[in-house]
């Protein structure tokens, strides 16, 4: 689903963050990229979202490649991929329903069938009772569920999450991880960056640790 082939990347000033990194995310799996702060987790996800391009090497994600990505392809890539973040990125002036529906509205042919898809995803995630609320009325965990609903309403094959539990307490964090696990079981490939590896103590996850520009598979004792 995702392949990074001999990636070299550095920000304008500074030594390379990644020097010939090769890494793969298999289809259908739930891959965790863990690592301490500033180790490059967000940078790695940004590379996988074509937000930044590698200085050398090739990033390929869901049939799109950093070699020939352009504005048009980027738009179609974004319609096939869901993104969630630590800060939720919901629009304050819109209701929960409208926030989720926005993901379909920007595709320009919003109709009653798509409206049904919004109801369905809200019910699936268990937040349909919140649909008329605005973000300010929600808890952190609820906000993240809305963001997940928005990411999923377009039925992506791939979901990318950058610190989705970073702003949540442990209880809410666990709930989000459980929800994501359920989504993964439903068939969606997930890549998730987190510095909080304890939340993923389960052999369902493929865990990598990132440090000094390299990724190492973490093999837990007892598994």
């Amino acid at each position: 689903m995702i392949k990074l082939d001999k990636i070299k990347f550095s920000y304008r000033k500074g030594k390379p963050l990644f020097d010939y990194l090769t890494f793969e995310v298999p289809k259908g799996e739930f891959t965790i990229i863990s690592g301490s702060s500033r180790s490059g987790k967000t940078t790695l996800l940004n590379l996988m979202q074509f937000k930044i391009l590698p200085d050398d090497g090739v990033v390929s994600v869901a049939g799109f490649s950093s070699d020939n990505i352009n504005r048009k392809k980027l738009t179609s890539f974004r319609r096939k991929t869901g993104f969630i973040f630590q800060d939720f990125r919901l629009i304050d002036e819109m209701t929960v329903f409208d926030n989720v529906a926005l993901a379909l509205k920007v595709r320009e042919n919003y109709n009653s069938q798509q409206k049904k898809a919004v109801y369905k995803v809200l019910a699936d995630i268990g937040i349909d009772y919140l649909m008329h609320s605005v973000p300010a009325e929600l808890s952190g965990g609820e906000k993240q569920k809305v963001a997940i609903a928005r990411a999923l309403v377009g039925k992506p094959l791939l979901l990318m999450a950058d610190e989705p539990t970073g702003s949540l307490d442990i209880q809410a964090g666990r709930e989000i991880v459980e929800l994501l696990k359920r989504i993964n079981i439903g068939g969606t490939t997930i890549v998730l960056a987190s510095h909080n590896a304890e939340l993923f103590a389960d052999n369902r996850f493929i865990i990598y640790n990132i440090s000094d520009g390299g990724l190492k598979r973490v093999v837990r004792n007892g598994h």
């Binding site: 974004r78 926005l102 993901a103 920007v106 320009e108």
Partner: peptide, 11 residues
């Protein structure tokens, strides 16, 4: 956010 969700520049 709309761009992240796949809105075109035209939109």
């Amino acid at each position: 956010i709309m761009e992240m969700l796949g809105a075109t520049d035209f939109y």
